[in-house]
């Protein structure tokens, strides 16, 4: 995925309409966003402002009602559901607020999940999983089940799962929202390291200014408008 001008994500004039009974709610109202390759972007804004919606549109988890979403030069809003699923598997790493690990699987198996969608052999998958768990510092806990891990550890497993396929972009939805300050710092250190040392492009939705401060750029979304400063 190469892109001229080094722009990886280009969101143009997007809107997402939700229906609440007979009422139509326009969440993004024609938002524009460009994100260069290698950026660590924090997206802030009040609840219901559409941060997660924008993240989902970029991650191909949802489709815009209007406008275009381009990632790595590809118009993902035009892809079929089937192609979109395949595209997500190859290019998107997702980190969720509540980790979303499968409770019946060990940390190792959870991290292996996205690799089941590739053509890698079992041995190759194990190698990738070990490397990803090594990056998040959880190699020795690979055989633990989620319930045997702390919140911070579970989120680190979540990050290992997100990076194991070496995706084009990491999308993190409130990754520290469920964690205490110490664990939260660990996660933010990890994300910063992934961005600075491995050049990962990261978009992080957060409510926490402390978390946003770790990003290279922060945007504020309110009433469908993206701004570099919060609205007074």
């Amino acid at each position: 995925m190469s892109e001229s001008n080094n722009v990886l994500v280009r969101v143009h004039d997007v809107d997402k309409v939700f229906r609440r009974g007979s009422e139509e709610v326009h969440v993004l109202g024609g938002a524009h966003l460009e994100m260069p390759d290698g950026e660590f972007l924090a997206l802030m804004g009040p609840s219901g402002s559409g941060k997660s919606t924008l993240l989902n549109l970029i991650g191909g988890l949802d489709r815009p009602s209007e406008g275009t979403v381009e990632v790595g030069g590809l118009r993902i809003d035009r892809l079929s559901d089937r192609k979109l699923a395949g595209w997500r598997a190859r290019h998107i790493g997702l980190v969720f607020q509540f980790y979303n690990l499968l409770p019946v699987l060990t940390a190792e198996r959870n991290v292996e999940l996205p690799l089941l969608l590739t053509h890698l052999s079992r041995a190759e998958r194990r190698k990738h999983v070990a490397a990803a768990l090594g990056v998040v510092g959880l190699k020795d806990r690979s055989q633990h089940y989620p319930r045997q891990l702390s919140g911070g550890e579970q989120q680190r497993v979540g990050i290992a799962r997100a990076i194991v396929t070496d995706p084009t972009i990491l999308l993190c939805d409130e990754p520290t929202g469920d964690l205490d300050r110490t664990s939260s710092d660990e996660i933010l250190n990890l994300l910063s390291a992934l961005n600075e040392e491995q050049g990962k492009t990261i978009m992080m939705v957060t409510h926490d200014p402390h978390a946003a401060a770790r990003a290279s750029r922060t945007l504020y979304l309110d009433k469908g408008k993206l701004a570099t400063e919060p609205e007074e």
């Binding site: 991650g59 395949g86 595209w87 979303n100 999940l113």
Partner: peptide, 14 residues
């Protein structure tokens, strides 16, 4: 639901 949605989000098809 959570598990299915997570798998779908990770790229598993329907």
């Amino acid at each position: 639901t959570r598990e299915i949605a997570t798998l779908r989000a990770l790229g598993f098809r329907s």
